[in-house]
Amino acid sequence: MSGDIAVLGAGLHPWGKWGRGFVEYGTVAARAALADAGLEWADVQSVVGADTVRGGYPGYVAGATFARALGWQGARVTSVYAACASGAQAVAAARAQLLAGLADVVLVVGADAAPKGFFAPAGGDRPDDPDWLRFRLLGATNPAYFGLYARRRMALYGDTADDFAQVKVKNAAAGALNPYARYRKPVTAAEVATSPVVADPLRLLDICATSDGAAALVLCGLDYARRRGVPDPVRIRAVATATPRYPRTELDLPDIATDSAASVPEAPAAFRPSLAEAAYEEAGLGPDDLSLAEVYDLSTALELQWYEDLGLCAEGGGTKLLRDGTTALGGRLPVNPSGGLASFGEAVPAQAIAQVCELTWQLRGRAGARQVPGARAGITANQGLFGHGSAVVVVR
């Protein structure tokens, strides 16, 4: 049986700092996705919500929260939490329901109302939580290990601070063309270089902001799409939610390496097979078949690492792709044509869903000024807590 499902609708609430609740943002995105699909809310048989731990109890039961906000109509509900990978795992849950015949139409929604500044662990002291331990024992906020990633690349591959700045320049140029982006202004390398240092060598403009925002997808089986008069829909062909492959040699010590896994020297090389290869194997295609990619650029240096982790180039070759213009709009393989987190900021449960929205619009040929000509296949990638990540392959 084919593992393909159809993307019938995609919708976003613009990113920003709006000062309202995540439910409002998610409802706007959901209604936009339903309108894009040409469906009514009553047509939806299942809702999968990507949870937000900062939204109080409603955020922990996001599926039911959005079902209630849209109006009780009998749909089954599912709620998924996996930090930054929540959106992709929500897509995976929806896909499983469709392939199992449990529903014909599933709505996937993720939304967040993020606080200003660094994300703090929710729920007070959590000594069994690696993130809590990292903050409490090391004082290492997320930008600290973004800086470690950057230093690692500088030491191993000769990357420079200007290379990192050029990632921001590239993504800001794309984001300036995206009406949903929070930051819609081109940025120069000089502006990056003169922004305040946050975690050396990374500066303020090297690191993504925290944002309010929402994204939604209406997913269905291929037969249902044909019955709706969509014979050749954009399709999700693979969803990989995988963990790295490296040993824990000190089992009695706290595992303080979380989503970056940066404390293990071979971690980036070990992460690639478990995520990218799983996605490519399931989809039956490889890096050479891609037209574009949307990756989780929490920092500029991390985007370069994704080029390698997704097999777009050999280990250490990410900077050459950047310098050659390969990953810019107009290049052979644009990465983050949406503008990425550099332009949106991070609305945790929404961003992985927004990545699929961008691929959907690109593969439909409806991405406006940021359109990748002839786009036929794309991949998303992001990472969640405790080292796991997710990738979604979308084809036309």
Rank of each mutant, 00 (worst) to 15 (best):
S2L: 10
S2M: 13
G9V: 10
G11A: 10
P14T: 07
W15V: 04
G21S: 13
G26D: 08
G38T: 11
D43C: 04
Q45C: 08
A50K: 09
T52H: 02
V53T: 01
G55H: 00
P58K: 03
T65Y: 09
G74V: 14
A83W: 03
V91Y: 00
A103M: 05
D104E: 14
V109N: 12
D112V: 06
K116G: 09
F118M: 10
F118H: 13
A120T: 15
P130L: 15
D131P: 14
L133N: 13
L133H: 06
R134M: 04
R136V: 14
G139C: 07
T141C: 12
T141M: 13
Y145V: 08
A150M: 00
R153Q: 08
F164S: 02
Q166G: 07
V167T: 01
N178T: 03
N178G: 00
K185Q: 13
T194V: 12
S195F: 06
P196H: 04
L202R: 09
R203M: 01
I207L: 03
A209D: 13
A209R: 13
A209T: 09
T210G: 06
S211D: 06
A215S: 04
L217I: 01
L217T: 04
G221P: 11
Y224C: 14
R227T: 12
R228C: 04
G229R: 11
G229Y: 10
V230A: 10
P233I: 02
T241W: 00
P247Q: 13
L253I: 14
S263M: 15
R272A: 14
E277I: 10
G286N: 09
D288E: 14
L290G: 00
A293Q: 09
E294G: 08
L298S: 12
S299M: 10
E303P: 09
E315S: 04
L322P: 02
R323F: 04
T327C: 00
A328R: 13
V335I: 01
P337V: 05
P337I: 00
S338K: 11
G339M: 06
G345A: 12
V348W: 03
A350F: 03
A354E: 02
V356W: 06
Q371R: 05
I379A: 02
T380K: 13
G384H: 02
L385W: 02
G387A: 12
A391I: 01
V392R: 02
